[in-house]
């Protein structure tokens, strides 16, 4: 397998109506598989959230990470994703989440650390165009002088790499600390009282509406790598909806690491 570059591929954009947390988990699973099998061109998918969620990493302990009573009280669904990494607290309109589904050839020969930075170089450029000096903080964070902006995770499946990232646009820190246990522990360690001190969201840094930040990101990706508008195929959606209702909604999956 030869190493490929961004421009060796015909990149497709999926940016659609808000979808449920479990459907997002399932779409990542299905679209990674489709790119790996060669049935889908390499794709950038921008997520829109239909409901609040806590998304825990593949290997995180459900009990250790999430206050189930608090999540239920706030009407927040807890889902587990296919990739490792840490918990994300999601409210519609408060985050910008995207996935890159690429052939493994795009990151061939790169260390993990290099692969994370390589797949997000376009985002750092988009942020620079918005006046934010941001950089990669290994292993998997995008950060700035003001604080952390985003966290990334990768997983490799049958010829494809899934690279997905959640960026903080705005944040309800008190609700987040209510729901995420790890947040409380980390904060108590560091002696700080506000999660907002660790995460500096894009809203305060840019002063722009969320949609404008997304439009800038898409424009930057398109200029650097090329990008054609696409949509989830009917057969892909059928597969994803089935997985969302079976695997990703099942207690066996969500509590797989209890």
């Amino acid at each position: 397998m030869m190493r490929t570059d961004w421009r060796d591929h015909d990149w497709q954009l999926i940016h659609t109506i808000p979808q449920s947390p479990t459907l997002h988990m399932a779409l990542d699973d299905v679209l990674t598989h489709e790119v790996g099998a060669g049935r889908r061109k390499p794709t950038l998918r921008i997520w829109e959230w239909a409901a609040p969620a806590v998304v825990i990493g593949r290997f995180q302990s459900l009990r250790n990470e999430v206050d189930a009573d608090a999540a239920s009280r706030h009407g927040i669904e807890v889902v587990r994703r296919v990739s490792g990494g840490g918990a994300m607290f999601i409210e519609p309109g408060n985050t910008i989440t995207y996935s890159i589904y690429a052939p493994q050839s795009l990151v061939k020969g790169l260390s993990f650390q290099e692969a994370y930075a390589f797949l997000d170089a376009w985002v750092l450029e988009a942020l620079a165009e918005l006046g934010i000096k941001a950089w990669y903080q290994p292993l998997n964070d995008i950060t700035s002088e003001g604080g952390k902006i985003a966290g990334a995770a990768q997983v490799h499946r049958g010829g494809a790499v899934l690279h997905h990232v959640t960026m903080a646009y705005d944040i309800d820190a008190s609700k987040m600390l209510d729901v995420l246990r790890i947040g409380r522990e980390k904060l108590s360690d560091k002696g700080t009282t506000s999660a907002a001190k660790r995460v500096d969201p894009l809203r305060s840094q840019t002063g722009l509406p969320r949609e404008a930040v997304i439009a800038r990101m898409i424009a930057t990706f398109r200029r650097l790598h090329g990008l054609a508008d696409d949509h989830v195929r009917a057969d892909e959606l059928v597969q994803a909806e089935a997985l969302a209702q079976t695997k990703f909604s099942s207690p066996a999956w969500i509590a797989d690491v209890a």
Partner: peptide, 12 residues
């Protein structure tokens, strides 16, 4: 014995 955390491990 149960290992957990926010690390990356493949295959899972």
């Amino acid at each position: 014995v149960h290992l957990s955390g926010d690390f990356f491990l493949e295959p899972d």
